[in-house]
């Protein structure tokens, strides 16, 4: 749509600007202030400059949390994106089953995040959980509170359970938007099922897939409540991801300044990734 140039449109945006500035800009400025000082109590503080940043960037705990986070986020993408596309292709296209499957598939998205943790805790425990008991009776040693591999895979399974539906719904609506004429043309040409997917469906899904990848990457990058409830970050620190590491530092240890420096590094990573994706999306829609 060709838009009219009108700078008075700023007045429409002003309420949003004020509210978001109140809840984003003021806190962000405060984080910057924290990060360059050593704050002992509200009245005793020293300017330390870049010290916390140097320390945080070289901090091995942070680096390993970042490593675990990246491995986790990429595993999430590697499983959820293909699985989401596959399930979207399986969804019914007409009839009463459409509404029913949509509601069932969307349900995990509406579960409060800590309850997701609770559900999986109850489901996976070795003594009372269906999954845990089943695996153990099959002779597989499984205890997510003890074994770090088991814990990691349980958290991953939980995330797949929780969020794959988002990819499914996005792809499903992308597929719905493909005109029937495309499929008819393919049928006349005698195209195989794979060819239809490769040359008709996949290209038309590119837009929603970019958004799905962006959202899944970002949300898995700040995952907090689910592993917090399920494993508490353990055993050891095998399922401690960035947000939890940060929250522990800020709330439990009340190490304000280090947490602030860490927050800013975290925020810069997010900012760079969002910018890349935003540029890709806006360019894709422009073409």
């Amino acid at each position: 749509m060709n838009k009219v140039e009108n700078n008075r449109a700023w007045f429409f945006v002003l309420p949003v600007l004020v509210l978001v500035a109140f809840s984003a800009v003021i806190p962000l400025m405060t984080v910057v202030n924290y990060s360059i000082q050593d704050i002992l109590d509200p009245h005793t503080r020293f300017f330390v400059g870049d010290e916390w940043f140097r320390e945080m960037l070289r901090d091995s705990q942070l680096q390993s949390a970042l490593g675990r986070q990246l491995i986790f986020s990429f595993s999430v993408l590697a499983i959820q994106i293909p699985l989401g596309i596959a399930i979207a292709l399986c969804m019914p296209t007409r009839g009463i089953w459409v509404a029913i499957t949509l509601v069932l598939v969307a349900l995990p998205l509406l579960v409060p995040w800590n309850v997701v943790g609770t559900i999986w805790q109850l489901f996976a425990r070795g003594d009372i959980g269906l999954l845990g008991v089943t695996l153990n009776s099959l002779g597989i040693e499984y205890n997510y509170t003890r074994g770090s591999t088991a814990a990691w895979f349980t958290v991953l399974a939980m995330d797949v359970w929780h969020w794959t539906s988002l990819v499914v719904l996005l792809c499903y609506s992308g597929l719905r938007a493909i005109p029937d004429a495309y499929y008819q043309a393919a049928r006349i040409d005698g195209a195989s099922r794979i060819a239809v997917f490769r040359y008709i469906q996949l290209p038309r899904l590119a837009g929603v897939l970019t958004i799905a990848v962006l959202l899944r990457f970002m949300d898995s990058f700040m995952i907090y409540a689910e592993p917090f409830v399920l494993t508490g970050g353990g055993p050891g620190s095998s399922t401690t991801f960035l947000s939890q590491h940060l929250a522990t530092m800020a709330i439990a240890q009340f190490d304000v300044s280090r947490a602030a420096a860490f927050s800013l590094i975290y925020f810069l990573i997010i900012l760079a990734i969002s910018w890349v994706f935003y540029t890709i999306i806006t360019r894709a829609t422009k073409d």
Partner: peptide, 21 residues
């Protein structure tokens, strides 16, 4: 874009200042 970055920002980053504010 700035609005969207707030959707992407981890709440943990803003936790302490929110508390203080």
């Amino acid at each position: 874009f700035w609005l969207l970055t707030n959707r992407m920002a981890p709440p943990a980053v803003f936790l302490l200042p929110f508390f203080q504010l």
